[in-house]
Amino acid sequence: MTIPRNVLWFEVLLYLSLLIDTLSAAFIERPSTEIDETAAVSADMFVVVVLMFFLLLVWLAARHRKSWARWILVAALGLSALSLLDSLSSGLRLASVVDLFSTVLAGAGIYLSFTDDAKDWFNSV
């Protein structure tokens, strides 16, 4: 079974977006005086769990034709875009530009999952 071209691009763009999000989360500055070590570890673990969840959703959508996983990714993209709008309203910083690039990649990937040969991929199940 060959994966259609648009589904493959969907998968690649979403994985790239998640990689960028992971790298930006790894280099986020945390004020050391405001949170203790336990809170920082808990926050990092939460980021890892959310990342693994999104990796699973992309894998289920692209490799196992689960349309519901694709719709969850659409909802997450919408929430991400709303968060990005709030972030951009406080000014353009490097973190905002990285988030914008990641969101554009995810949006392009999700768009491709609803077009051309990807429609048949998800409808044939």
Rank of each mutant, 00 (worst) to 15 (best):
L56Q: 09
S96P: 06
I28T: 04
A39Y: 00
F101V: 15
F114D: 09
L82K: 09
L57R: 09
W9F: 09
S80W: 04
V49L: 13
V104I: 15
A76Y: 02
A26P: 00
N123P: 00
I110A: 10
D116R: 15
S89E: 06
E34T: 07
E34H: 03
I110E: 10
D99N: 12
D99R: 12
F53D: 01
L16P: 00
S32E: 04
T115D: 06
F53P: 01
R30M: 12
L19R: 01
D116Y: 10
F101H: 03
F53M: 15
S80F: 06
R5Y: 09
W71Q: 01
L82N: 07
D21C: 10
T115M: 13
I72L: 11
D117Q: 06
L60S: 08
S89T: 12
A26D: 03
D21I: 05
I28A: 11
W121F: 10
V97R: 03
S24I: 07
T38E: 07
F122T: 08
I35V: 10
K119A: 11
V58S: 05
L100D: 01
D44W: 07
D120A: 14
M45D: 09
L60T: 00
I35Y: 09
L51F: 14
S90L: 06
L23G: 12
M52P: 01
M45A: 10
A40E: 12
Y111L: 14
D21S: 11
M1S: 15
V58P: 05
L57G: 05
A61P: 04
S113R: 09
L60H: 03
L8H: 14
G109E: 06
A43T: 05
D36L: 04
I35N: 11
D86R: 14
D117G: 06
H64T: 02
F114R: 14
G78P: 05
V98F: 07
A40N: 12
P4L: 01
D99I: 02
M1N: 11
S87H: 14
I20Q: 04
A69I: 07
A81L: 15
L92S: 11
W59D: 07
A62F: 08
F54A: 08
P4C: 02
A26C: 06
D36Y: 04
I3K: 15
R65C: 02
R63S: 09
K66P: 00
S87T: 13
N123C: 11
D21A: 12
A40K: 11
L60N: 01
E29W: 14
V125N: 08
P4T: 05
L60P: 02
S90G: 03
V47K: 13
E11N: 13
L92M: 12
W121Q: 04
L85D: 01
T33C: 06
F54N: 15
